[in-house]
Amino acid sequence: MSENKYKDLEDLAKDIRKKTIDSIGFLGVGHIGGAMSIADLLTILYYRKMHVDPSNPKMEDRDKLVLSKGHAGPALYSTLAQKGFFPEQWLRTLNVGGTNLPSHCDMNRTPGIDMTTGSLGQGLSSAIGLALAMRLDKSERNVFAIIGDGESQEGQNWEAAMTASQFRLNKLIAFTDYNKMQIDGYTSEIMSIDDPEAKWKAFGWNTDRVNGHSFAELDAAIDRARESKDKPTMIIMDTIKGKGCSFAEGVITNHNMAFTYEQAKEAIEALG
């Protein structure tokens, strides 16, 4: 039996989930579902894949991330805090007036955030701009972008999809957090985005499909994407909305949920 190459990431992801549940639970309400579904992706990106420096968040020639589904900011804040971009105590200031950690990502407030997002559908275009700027600077770094499945319903994504392939942005690696749920219900019932791979392929992208909670699959897919010579890549991640939060996992109303700090503590304990 081979050694588990991802034990460290599993532990780190668990800590990121605990921190995220704690920060939202401390406030009492927040976007728990979509934060938990991308926790594993953020873990592998920030601990294995991205060239970043927590002591110098604006380091020249770094990899960049656009979290287009900006409401999942709390998961990214936990990741950045854990990496040392800012003190972990900040996590309990989520959405408190004057905080550096607003519900949706703000590059001007939070060290380590590369692009302001929150109005769904806009992040992929911004990621294209960042990738073009990197190309002008002759950088070999990547721009990563994460969009939601519900977010894919915004038409601007498809304008951006055409643009990224037209401009042959092989350094752009995007992920769809395909957790199959959105605010009003199941994505398939509200406005289906099936079959996402066929859609992105038709727009000229490389596509891949992985279990978004498998580090092995994410690892391999990101490495494959990095080999691309002339196309952007969309990695469709099958995920579970609320993954790892006992009272929220798979619950249809978990998009923006109110819960008590007692519930949060129980969910944190359940993670072990």
Binding site: Q122, S125, G129, L132, A133, E159, A160, M162, T163
Partner: peptide, 16 residues
């Protein structure tokens, strides 16, 4: 694709 154009411009700006 004007909306996309302004988004791409914003990213270019964020890239300096």
């Amino acid at each position: 694709a004007e909306a996309n154009m302004v988004g791409v411009a914003s990213g270019l700006s964020a890239g300096g």
